[in-house]
């Protein structure tokens, strides 16, 4: 069975959950080979988890290069010849590695897919308003997979280790001169969260976003905001959900005081369950909500928070 390369997504030796999603998806195409590009010993720390989630092979490419993303591209380029395809997380970095790899190797680029089968891939586009099936017309397509789209199935692979060289970068590269970790605080990341509580214009002020945060914390949820709330300065832009912010697909999405402009719905309508609270019973958010309360979020949200806390206690 042909091998399928999976670029391991990790930060400072900590695996990102999306890697296991990629390994699960890779099994539909062939035998998963995890490719770890990182500092000395990076693969050692990740090997057990990768094997448990289906990696038949683990390529360890150790490098201390400060070239930005060039080692990842070069390693995948050196391995792609015998592969049935390459799977990469559809993160900002992942998309870029995938694009550069595709132009170098003349491979079809299938971007931000939500499903992978032997016949092709599935896309969910325009914020979930359309589904599309696509396929590559080349050898070894390069596929980026949307985080959260694949349900992880743990089934152990052979986990055979192999060290590979990191080829020298071709062409001039950007140099990394510093990194700062994400300052997300103690709440989960928006794109990885299983529950998200978002606030919109109806929250009314930056101070009152504590109502959104309070409910979120009771549920162990991430906090999001609509564009209207961000543009009004109620909440920082990195938490914006929607077409120009983040696209999210959690198990549960609770929209507080969000009218549901098409821009916003495009970023959240693929959530499994949607609950909306809005004063305006005509608000379009109710068209996509599984459960809606027409009412004042400042009364409803704290009551819900109490109920959640009670049940936990």
């Amino acid at each position: 069975m042909a091998e399928v390369l999976v670029l391991v997504d990790h930060v400072d030796g900590e695996i990102k959950k999306t890697t296991y999603e990629l390994l699960t998806a890779a099994k539909a195409l062939g035998s998963p080979s995890a490719v770890v590009v990182g500092g000395a010993g990076a693969a050692d720390k990740l090997a057990d988890g990768l094997t448990e989630h289906g990696a038949d092979k683990i390529y360890a490419a150790e490098t201390d290069s400060t070239d930005f993303l060039a080692p990842e591209v070069a390693v995948l380029e050196s391995l792609i010849g015998s592969a049935a395809g390459v799977l990469i997380s559809a993160s900002a970095n992942g998309k870029e590695v995938a694009g550069r790899l595709a132009v170098r190797t003349g491979s079809g680029l299938l971007s931000d897919v939500v499903g992978v089968t032997g016949d092709g891939v599935q896309h969910s586009i325009f914020g979930g308003a359309y589904t599309a099936e696509a396929k590559a017309n080349t050898e070894h397509p390069v596929i980026t997979v949307r985080p959260g789209a694949i349900d992880i199935e743990a089934s152990a692979g052979a986990g055979a280790r192999e060290s590979v060289e990191v080829p020298a970068a071709s062409g001039r590269q950007a140099t990394v001169t510093g990194r700062e970790p994400i300052q997300g605080g103690s709440r989960p990341e928006l794109t990885e969260a299983t529950v998200i509580v978002s606030g919109g214009r109806g929250v009314g002020s930056a101070e009152d976003f504590t109502v959104v945060e309070g409910l979120a914390d009771s549920l162990g949820a991430a906090v999001g905001a609509s564009r209207a709330a961000v543009d009004s300065g109620y909440y920082p832009p990195q938490f914006q959900v929607g077409q120009t912010g983040k696209s999210v697909s959690p198990q549960l999405y609770i929209a507080l005081g969000i009218s549901g402009a098409i821009q916003h719905r495009a970023g959240m309508q693929t959530s499994k369950t949607i609950v909306a609270v809005n004063k305006d019973e005509e608000a379009p958010i109710f068209e996509v909500a599984d459960f809606g309360i027409v009412g004042d979020l400042f009364k409803v949200a704290p009551q819900l928070q109490d109920e959640v806390t009670k049940r936990k206690g």
Binding site: G108, N137, T138, E287, F291
Partner: peptide, 22 residues
């Protein structure tokens, strides 16, 4: 093109669920 879209369809609109007044 190096990739082809083989089919596409608008997703059936999500059915609005229950809506109750507080």
């Amino acid at each position: 093109a190096l990739v082809s879209v083989t089919s596409s369809a608008p997703k059936p609109p999500k059915q609005a669920g229950e809506k109750v007044t507080d």
